[in-house]
Design a protein around this nucleic acid. Structure first.
Lengths: 151, 151
DNA sequence: TCGATAAGGGTGCATACACACCTAAAGGCG
DNA sequence: CGCCTTTAGGTGTGTATGCACCCTTATCGA
């Protein structure tokens, strides 16, 4: 694996690790991607239900990707989209009771996967890695589009 | 971005960085994922055309994912699948002349993206990151499936 | 030689992801 | 108030990804 492309290395690692986490969450038939949505909504419940745009921002997802990703979750009754009474354009995303229950059941499964990774990779290196990855996600934010430059 | 899930952090970083690399490759209408395929085939040409399974292994991809991913490349005439004369089951993947040309045109675009990343993240940290990611990809290899355990 | 098993691949399906483009509602201004 | 611009989202399309399941060809033992 003499991958010299950082992006490809990142994608490869993400694929592999996703498979491990997905396997851990398999008993609840939830993907790590879906777990991330439920978990984010749960952890930041105190701030009130986020709009689509806010949630997409938090998850580092394209706004339209979130629209697509929420479809199976809404179909299964884990999340619900409610119209904002103050802004007819905005739709706020909430966890349903089933969504809360699912998240509670999945958390130990996720924890097991995370612990398993930390044990083999090292807890401290793992934390450092997350920091690096967060920095990349934050920094590459505007890198893709070199500013439209209208006129 | 207080992501505590290593897998989600990895996926998020991969999404963002992919957007940056994709933007760099946009003039040639090639994704970084597709570039990785062409580049891998080109760099290891001396070993002779790999079978589907071998190439999937190299790329850290599921075998069936590679089947799907090769479709647009084959459609556009960048790669070709040739039957193995010694094994009727095996199909070997080769770069076509167009594939070679495309790879040559894309290389400087990829290089620019990689250099841009290295400048902001640091060349040495970048190399260390690739090593860590390669280790994760290699190690998480069998983690997902805990061995079938037949009977 | 033949039948069972293993190995190499492909298909169908569902989710994940983002871009181009569209719609509708909100805000601002004459 | 009516018009224009901005803003929040959705849709359609195409690639990316992997699992369950299927087919075909090798391989090997009786």
């Amino acid at each position: 694996m003499d991958v010299e492309c950082t992006c490809s290395a990142l994608r490869m690692a993400a694929r592999r690790l996703s498979q491990a986490y997905d396997a851990a969450l398999a008993p609840e038939k939830l993907s790590v991607s879906q777990y991330a949505v439920l978990s984010n909504l749960a952890k930041r419940e105190a701030e009130g239900p986020p709009s689509m745009g806010e949630l997409a921002e938090r998850l580092g997802l394209d706004r339209t990707t979130l629209t697509h990703n929420l479809r199976p979750l809404a179909r299964d009754g884990l999340v619900a989209l409610v119209a904002d009474p103050l802004d007819g354009r905005s739709r706020r995303v909430t966890l349903t009771p089933d969504g809360w229950a699912k998240r509670r059941r999945c958390q130990p499964l996720w924890r097991a996967a995370q612990d398993h990774f930390d044990r083999s990779f090292g807890t401290e290196p793992s934390r450092a890695l997350r920091d690096s990855l967060a920095a990349i996600a934050r920094h590459a934010e505007g890198t893709a589009a070199p500013v439209p430059e209208k006129d």
